[in-house]
Amino acid sequence: MAEFSTAPTLETERLILRPMTMADWPEYAALMRSDRARFMGGPHSGDAAWGMFCHDAAQWPLMGHGALMIEDKVSGACLGQVGVNHGPLFPEHELGWFLYEGAEGKGCAFEAARAFRDWARSVRRLPALVSYMDPGNRRSARLAERLGGRLDPDAPRTDPRSLVYRHFGG
């Protein structure tokens, strides 16, 4: 069993990063089945989306990290997800994120990703983080750069087309 078998709850100025619940499934599934998932290998079937949802939660007891949902402190609305992925699908620990429609452009992904990156480094003590992304996903690339990530053309990747941003100090 992993050292960190349960997902933490983290707070930022505006956000709560919390463990996933079944109440998160409908909106998650809708995103993964939509064209908005095109930068994440989608759109995905309902079965594939369910597998991804379970993967995000199962990493906590198996790997000591996984995904957290991004919740607005004031409204309680779920805005998206941030996570650290690894295992057979990711050659290195990946810092990833997505936001639901209407949540973009407000700095929430940056705030959530920075907080989870800092947790992964200070609490989980992960030596390195990367972000894999589709070359057409300029918004995520800008966010990776804002987080201090730099393109690493020599980084291992499962999809040779993916860009890999390596995250250095905070």
Score class of each variant (00 low, 15 high):
M22C: 13
A23N: 14
E27S: 04
A30E: 15
A30W: 02
M32G: 00
R33A: 08
R33Y: 01
R33E: 15
S34P: 11
S34Q: 09
S34N: 10
S34V: 06
R36F: 03
A37F: 07
A37N: 01
R38H: 07
G41P: 04
G41I: 08
G42M: 09
P43A: 13
H44R: 11
G46P: 00
A48E: 14
A48S: 12
A49I: 09
W50Y: 15
W50V: 02
W50T: 02
G51M: 08
G51H: 04
G51L: 09
F53I: 06
C54F: 15
H55E: 12
H55Y: 14
A57S: 02
A57T: 12
W60S: 10
P61R: 11
L62H: 12
M63Q: 15
H65G: 05
H65M: 14
G66N: 00
A67W: 11
A67R: 05
L68Q: 00
L68D: 05
M69R: 14
I70C: 00
D72Y: 08
D72G: 10
K73C: 13
S75P: 09
G76E: 02
G76N: 13
C78Y: 02
C78M: 12
G80H: 02
Q81C: 11
V82A: 03
V84I: 15
V84T: 01
H86G: 14
H86M: 07
G87M: 06
F90N: 04
P91F: 01
P91Q: 05
H93I: 07
H93N: 12
E94F: 06
L95G: 00
W97D: 10
W97H: 15
W97R: 09
L99A: 01
L99W: 04
Y100M: 11
E101W: 14
E101N: 05
A103K: 07
A103L: 02
A103T: 03
A103C: 04
K106D: 08
K106F: 09
G107K: 13
C108A: 14
C108D: 05
A109S: 08
F110D: 02
E111H: 06
A113F: 07
A115V: 09
A115Y: 03
F116K: 02
F116M: 10
D118N: 15
W119H: 07
A120L: 03
R124P: 01
R124F: 05
R125S: 10
R125M: 08
A128W: 04
L129K: 08
L129M: 12
L129N: 01
S131I: 01
S131E: 00
D134S: 06
D134W: 14
N137M: 03
R138W: 13
R138M: 10
S140P: 00
S140H: 05
R142T: 00
E145G: 15
E145L: 15
E145R: 12
R146Q: 13
R146E: 11
L147A: 09
L147V: 08
G148Y: 04
L151P: 08
L151A: 14
L151Q: 10
P153Y: 15
P153C: 06
A155R: 07
A155L: 08
A155M: 06
R157S: 01
D159F: 14
D159M: 04
D159C: 04
P160S: 13
R161N: 13
